[in-house]
Design a protein around this nucleic acid. Structure first.
Length: 863
RNA sequence: GCCGGAGUGGCGGAAUUGGUAGACGCAAGGGACUUAAAAUCCCUCGGGUCUCUGACCUGUACGAGUUCGAGUCUCGUCUCCGGCACCA
């Protein structure tokens, strides 16, 4: 080899070596002991799998570099590591490519996978490809269908009509997350609410458990847990029945403010409420309100002409239909208390409805009981003391909530209940490139599930992509026409496919089983040994954008799988690391908008010469022209440098600002290490280290042990790779100025180099392998550096002999003195008082107190 | 509005249970080597003042407080970022 660092050559060499030796293969699952534990401790390291969009981007690079360091580190620490990768391969972009370029989604997807897989390997990532998962393959999506059937059996998958986000231009339903500011993410058309029949998964069945489980997620970032809790949105309140005058019907409402029940002056029901049709005479007017459902900006109401009775006051209350009342939350009907709810207040003003004050703040209760309601400028939403509330007047809100709740239950007016914002998961998609929903519609038998033995329902490939909207499956006669499994008569298949979030809700379980080995059985008493051993995921790493959706769905699925006896854990991801975005500065021209950095010269747009404006540092995106192509970067600097920089520039959870100069710095660091190794290679460095070392050698030895301790701590604590790398740099700086003269010196340096290479290995694997070989360590059985143990430090050798004692006077730094470590407090105090600077300051002053912090400082307090 | 998170040099970022603010890197400036450049190596690098080989003052968004001592703890204020947002 040569003494100049040439990344491309060595990276190819070692990638080939790893592949040939199958070094990243998952260790076989050990047989279960009685306690259910295998012999060796396992570690399941998982990164969110990518959508095969065509090429890897910097976000992936960062995500996978982090995961790879953890996986390789854990292997070196002796864990059985599972580190798999796969493809979230169903999705709309493939279908769009088909419409636009005439390529079949399957071809497009598999070609992208092939290319991206090469890119991942080129990064030197240590995946066990034997466990690769591709969600668009029938072997995989068969089990989506199987889960669907299991949920259907349990009543946890069902079909209902509801309002959904509908894009009139794409002619399909959109998930909530695909609606951005009320517009379609794809074509920018305004999304409308449309009533449609859809398949749902009953995630609300697990609402309480999903909420309770949040407290177990101690290894998750707090904000993600907070977002999950927020999304589930539990509230406590009461349901109260208001009899509708002149009918036998009762209008049931839900409220979290039973303390304001005496202030109800009208009621509102959602346009989709089952009583709306009944109560409203003029259907065309109802349609107007319906059309504005979900458009929350302007409140639209319609008086039904009917009244209800407040069971607590016997007051006559008008009933309205209102567009802002949600059908999906609570009972779809509300009581309106304009004095104490801003929305109700605004609605009351618009329609001239009365306002009745029943709560006042504690300190002015006496005065404001007389205050006329007309003087209110806005609702008083705080809690306070009740007035005008019969026998409950004078109670504080908190007490009143409890007492009124009891009273309502005693009198049979209603009951105390819990409510959740979480809604059932609508999984139907009017798209082609997804899992067919295994349902058959028969005119005689109705909705018939596809029998388990007939799975998978294969997605037909021979279809036409018109781009006119609507699923191509609607046009596929062979797919559509089917015999009813029950009666054998002519029947029709469901043409909707599943939301792709279904695919990613259990892929982490599929990895435990391996390629072509995915199979579940709901009749087993205990989970398979693989699933028992590997689940849960010990470390999950991915972007924050999935804080709610994917992570919530996966938690739901895990609970479902647990109840089917497939896994024995209730939570899928023990620890979660949400890595920050990869950002870069942007450039803008007043005329040509976003510019590539190459289009800017001396701060001016090269096309028109106008002054280019340096924009904000933004997330890398094609549209903002601030992306860095990983391929080009690898070509120039190698994968190791790219990995090292992305781990060094910021702690993993924070946003990372890309810096070309910083990349060069990372490359420089590696070249420096390379140079040191080549300078000393061939020299005997493995002789035992003697006790009588020269001062420089003993200092280097100490620094080495300190570095091992620091790096191990940084990785173990919070995966703070940036400070770990800084520690490498410090050690390397000391190594590079080290002049070995004696054999002992060389031994100390050899130890430092070897320790450094072992620690660098998870970060820059090819580089470390190569230098390990150059050092002559790659011999015998353990020819790979990754077959060696992570280095251990010796606490004794890491100890400093001398420390710098800080001397303060009145808390201000006045002197620093070198003292032997382990100096007694008294001696430290004496040494401090003898210091020249201190003597000067003490002149004629009284010493009030002396504070000694062992091994750190002495603070002398004077008057 | 509600819930999170964050404010430290020119920049990215470090700072155990409160104990030397600015590790490490980048940029910048100066020097060495060189015919020259690149690369490499060495030095300086928060701001300010002075009697300038040194010393002092000041400094972690802002204002108070606790403490011998606060980037770190407490209270209040401001700004920025993210999420949710008529959820009754």
């Amino acid at each position: 080899m040569q003494d100049k660092y040439n990344p491309e050559e060595i990276e190819m060499k070692w990638q080939k070596y790893w592949a040939e030796r199958r070094l990243h293969k998952t260790p076989p699952t050990p047989p279960l002991n009685k306690g259910g534990q295998g012999g060796v401790e396992k570690f399941y390291c998982l990164e969110m799998f990518p959508y095969p969009s065509g090429k890897i981007h910097m976000g992936h690079v960062r995500n996978y570099a982090i995961g790879d360091v953890i996986a390789r580190y854990k292997r070196m620490c002796g864990f059985n590591v599972l580190h798999p990768m796969g493809w979230d391969a169903f999705g709309l972009p493939a279908e769009n490519a088909a419409i636009k370029h005439g390529v079949h989604p399957a071809k497009w997807t598999y070609e992208n996978i092939e290319y991206m897989k090469k890119q991942l390997d080129r990064m030197g990532l240590s995946y066990d490809w034997d466990r690769e998962v591709t969600t668009c393959s029938p072997e995989y999506y068969k089990w989506n269908q199987w889960f669907f059937l299991k949920l259907y059996e349990k009543g946890l998958a069902y079909k209902k009509a509801s309002f959904v986000n509908w894009c009139p231009s794409c002619v399909t339903v959109l998930a909530n997350e695909q609606v951005i500011d009320g517009k379609c993410w794809r074509c920018d058309s305004t999304v409308v609410q449309k009533e449609l029949e859809q398949w749902f998964f009953k995630i609300t069945h697990y609402a309480e458990e999903l909420l309770q489980g949040c407290d177990e997620l101690t290894g998750w970032p707090e904000r993600v847990v907070a977002m999950q809790k927020n999304w589930i949105g539990k509230s406590e309140g009461v349901e109260v029945d208001f009899p509708i005058n002149g009918t036998d019907e009762k209008l049931r409402i839900y409220t979290t403010r039973p303390d304001t029940l005496f202030g109800v002056t009208y009621m509102c029901i959602a346009p989709g409420h089952h009583l709306a049709e009944k109560l409203v005479g003029d259907k065309s007017k109802l349609e107007v309100v319906k059309a504005k459902y979900g458009k929350m900006e302007d409140k639209e109401g319609l008086f039904t002409g009917h009244y209800a009775t407040n069971p607590l006051t016997d007051e006559k209350i008008p009933i309205y239909v209102a567009n802002f009342v949600l059908m999906e939350y609570g009972t779809g009907a509300i009581m309106s208390v304009p004095a104490h709810d801003q929305r109700d207040f605004e609605f009351a003003e618009k329609y001239g409805l009365p306002i009745k004050v029943v709560i006042v703040s504690e300190d002015r209760s006496a005065v404001s009981s007389q205050q006329p309601a007309e003087q209110l400028k806005e609702a008083y939403e705080e809690e306070g003391v009740l007035i005008n509330s019969g026998q409950f007047s004078g109670l504080k809100s908190a007490d009143a909530k409890r007492e009124i709740g009891k009273y309502i239950e005693e009198k049979g007016f209603g009951k105390r209940t819990l409510n959740y914002k979480l809604r059932d998961w609508g999984i139907s998609r009017q798209r082609y490139w997804g899992t067919p929903i295994p349902i058959i519609y028969c005119d005689k038998c109705g909705v018939v599930p596809v029998p388990e033995k007939d799975l998978p329902v294969i997605l037909p490939e021979d279809v036409k992509f018109t781009g006119k909207g609507g699923s191509p499956l609607l046009e596929s006669e062979p797919f559509l026409r089917v015999k009813c499994p029950k009666c054998g008569g002519a029947a029709r298949r469901e043409t909707d496919t599943m939301d792709t979030f279904v695919d990613s809700s259990w892929y982490f379980v599929a990895y435990c089983l391996g390629k072509n080995k995915i199979a579940f059985n709901s009749h087993l008493k205990t989970p398979s040994s693989e699933l028992n051993y590997w689940m849960p995921v010990d470390q999950y790493i991915g972007g924050i954008e999935h804080a709610v959706l994917h992570l919530l769905y996966s938690r739901f699925f895990t609970k479902g799988m647990r109840d089917l006896g497939i896994v024995n854990v209730g939570e899928p991801f023990k620890n979660l690391l949400t890595q920050g975005m990869v950002c870069k500065e942007t450039w803008r021209c007043p005329e040509h908008d976003w510019l590539f950095p190459e289009e800017v010269k001396d701060g001016r747009c090269m096309r028109c010469g106008k002054e280019a404006e340096k924009g904000r540092v933004e997330k890398m995106s094609k549209s903002k022209k601030n992306v860095i192509d990983p391929d080009a970067l690898i070509k120039k600097y190698g994968a190791d440098t790219m990995r090292l920089f992305s781990l060094f520039a910021a702690p993993p959870e924070r946003d990372l600002e890309w810096s070309d100069k910083g990349v060069e710095g990372a490359y420089r660091f590696l070249s420096k290490v390379w140079g040191i190794v080549y300078k000393y290679k061939g020299q005997e460095t493995s002789i035992p280290i003697a006790y009588n070392l020269s001062p420089i050698a003993s200092s280097l030895l100490r620094k080495t042990h300190q570095t091992i301790r620091k790096v191990t701590d940084d990785i173990e604590k919070d995966y703070h790779f940036n400070t770990a790398i800084a520690a490498f740099m410090e050690l390397v700086n000391e190594m590079s100025s080290f002049n070995a003269e004696t054999e002992e010196d060389r031994a100390a340096l050899g130890f430092a180099v070897k320790s450094t290479l072992l620690m660098l290995a998870p970060f820059v694997p090819h580089f470390s392998e190569e230098l390990w070989e150059v050092m002559g360590e790659a011999t015998g059985e353990k020819s790979s550096i990754f077959e060696h143990q992570w280095p251990a430090w010796d606490e004794e050798l890491a100890k400093e002999e001398e420390i710098e004692l800080v001397v303060q006077v009145n808390g201000k730094l006045r002197a620093k003195i070198l003292v032997p470590a382990g100096l007694s407090d008294d001696d430290a105090k004496q040494r401090a008082l003898q210091e020249q600077r201190v003597k000067e300051m003490l002149d004629g002053k009284q010493i009030k107190k002396v504070v000694v912090v062992k091994g750190k400082l002495v603070n002398i307090v004077i008057g």
